[in-house]
């Protein structure tokens, strides 16, 4: 079954089209890196998939038209890890992760034992139990990022959209964070779509790379097919060397 199906998806913000006529199918269990220069429309496309912006065209999730899902059903199918998540400093990690259960609850409902178990499990998967009662305001950037991912895991949505999940992390935390996501993908059967700026990390972790430019998908394929020196020069205006290290690609910026 397809996890995500997009057909002629167009999003207009402030009069201009930010995402134009995007048609893509993502299989269940795929890890897709969404790359592209600043302003290419990556964040907006992720929001369209999650139903957070008005869009034209059709979005289907897990084989069902998204238009037929209500908000909570949609949020049970798709979890979002935003680029700069709001993390109120007074909330504890446990309380924050438990909020991932919101789409499973009515507006007046309280969390059941099952909801608490789901949150406890997410804490465990991200090795956050020792921090469960710590306030978010006291965490380091890497710990906070893990808490945000844990919230998405507690949501128990099989599609997870991540907007620059590693932007705020150092190189070690970037790798650990992506390894963790890769492990969760296998373990939980997740479909991951991640907007990424770091092309080497995209090449190393993703099965498939979508290159967006000017609101359109201009290249789609395995990392080696999309990440070529010519394509990156054309769409990023960048001079790079694409090299192979230990059978995986690395993209190196070079000086003209």
């Amino acid at each position: 079954m397809n996890a995500i199906g997009l057909s002629q998806v167009t999003v207009s913000l402030g009069g201009g089209a930010v995402v134009r006529d995007v048609g893509v199918v993502v299989e269940q269990g795929e890890w897709v890196a969404l790359i592209g220069p600043n302003g290419a429309g990556k964040t907006t496309l992720l929001r369209a998939i999650a139903g957070l912006v008005r869009h034209d065209g059709e979005v289907s999730l897990l084989g069902r038209p998204a238009a037929s899902l209500d908000r909570r059903q949609r949020a049970r199918a798709v979890a979002v890890v935003p680029q700069t998540p709001e993390t109120p400093p007074w909330l504890t990690v446990a309380e924050y992760v438990l909020m991932g259960r919101t789409p499973h609850l009515g507006p007046l409902a309280r969390e059941s034992a099952g909801d608490r178990d789901a949150a406890a499990r997410a804490l465990e998967l991200l090795e956050l139990q020792p921090l469960a009662d710590r306030a978010l305001g006291t965490l380091s950037g890497g710990e906070r990022q893990r808490a945000v991912v844990a919230r998405a895991i507690a949501q128990e949505a099989s599609i997870v959209l991540l907007d620059e999940p590693t932007a705020a992390l150092d190189i070690g935390h970037q790798q650990r964070s992506l390894e963790l996501l890769d492990g969760l993908r296998d373990h939980e059967g997740l479909t991951l779509v991640a907007a990424m700026h770091d092309l080497t990390l995209a090449a190393q972790y993703a099965d498939r790379v979508l290159l967006m430019s000017g609101g359109r998908i201009v290249a789609d394929g395995a990392p080696a097919e999309v990440l070529t020196e010519e394509t990156l020069a054309e769409h990023y205006g960048a001079t790079v060397r694409v090299v192979t290290v230990d059978e995986r690609l690395a993209v190196l910026p070079t000086r003209r």
Partner: peptide, 23 residues
């Protein structure tokens, strides 16, 4: 007070609350 749990979710901002299925 009946909506108090949702107020915590709203304190995450509009987009994140919407992504958690809140109207």
């Amino acid at each position: 007070v009946a909506l108090r749990r949702t107020v915590d979710v709203l304190s995450l901002g509009d987009l994140e609350a919407a992504s958690l299925g809140v109207d």
